[in-house]
Design a protein around this nucleic acid. Structure first.
Lengths: 144, 144
DNA sequence: CCCACATAGTTAGCATGGTAACTATGTGGA
DNA sequence: TCCACATAGTTACCATGCTAACTATGTGGG
């Protein structure tokens, strides 16, 4: 997250970037503004998801499984190819989703015994279905 | 941070947003792409700052003091008006910057004894000066 | 004057992110 | 065959974010 409330003035950006070759101060200004909007939106999304007792990562993990075409389960390693978090974080995320009863081991386990196939429970399906419209409404309403 | 490696396909966005009134799927797509770019850039910035043993918040706190016009010190409450983090986080950030010897109590303390005026040490000045060009080079080089 | 309220900052406890290092299982070439 | 290496997932430990509640100081109306 980018935590500045007030962005640096154009004058300050211009004076600082003057020392740095090949940097366009106006582009820097644009990038800073977008970082700020993205951070604000991400906070709003987190606050919204928290009202459903989900973190952003938990929600995205549910989405990866729910929206996988042709299948209703994924292994952790498959989720981690779609979700950009470290392995331990994914492991903990899956653990907390299982504790909440939103995720469970899939009925059909893979031959490779190192993997754990995971699918949404009924509760997981229904929570995801409830949250999704609000999530996209936030994305759609964002001024970026 | 927004942790999807692959964004949802336009088809999926279209199908989901069809249920949500007043949401333009193309706008959602744009917002998702910007969230993703912002997250990637923020990670790059964090990685860069880490090579100088600074967190993003620590660096921004230094910047707030270093770039304050007409003054060379700020109180915590003044920093918190410019930096969008909670009071306890700011308190810890200031503590860690003081531990590193980058920040110190200012020579002139305010009359209000609840406040602690803070200024950069020489080391803090020099670290900040060293880091700033690389920081703006990253911002300037970002494709957003 | 003084007590209620406001403000500055800290402490305590929790959630979520990271890396390093570990176990367990699979795989491929000598 | 079997041993070195690769891959899946977990454990341990730490940094940084949050809220709630605390202490200390300042301020203003009765």
């Amino acid at each position: 997250m980018f935590f500045l409330k007030e962005l640096p003035s154009s004058e300050m950006i211009a004076s600082v970037t003057a020392d740095v070759p090949d940097v366009d101060p106006e582009h820097v200004q644009t990038v800073l503004e977008r970082l700020r909007s993205a951070s604000v939106l991400l906070r709003d999304i987190e606050a919204f998801l928290r009202t459903h007792a989900l973190s952003q990562t938990q929600f995205l993990a549910l989405m990866m499984i729910a929206r996988e075409p042709e299948r209703n389960s994924l292994s952790a390693v498959e989720i981690s190819k779609r979700l950009d978090v470290s392995k331990p974080v994914l492991s903990k995320t899956i653990g907390s989703l299982m504790d909440k009863g939103l995720l469970a081991p899939a009925k059909e386990q893979p031959v490779d015994q190192r993997q754990k196939q995971l699918s949404l429970t009924e509760k997981g399906q229904s929570v995801f279905t409830n949250v999704l419209p609000g999530y996209f409404a936030l994305l759609g309403g964002a001024a970026m």
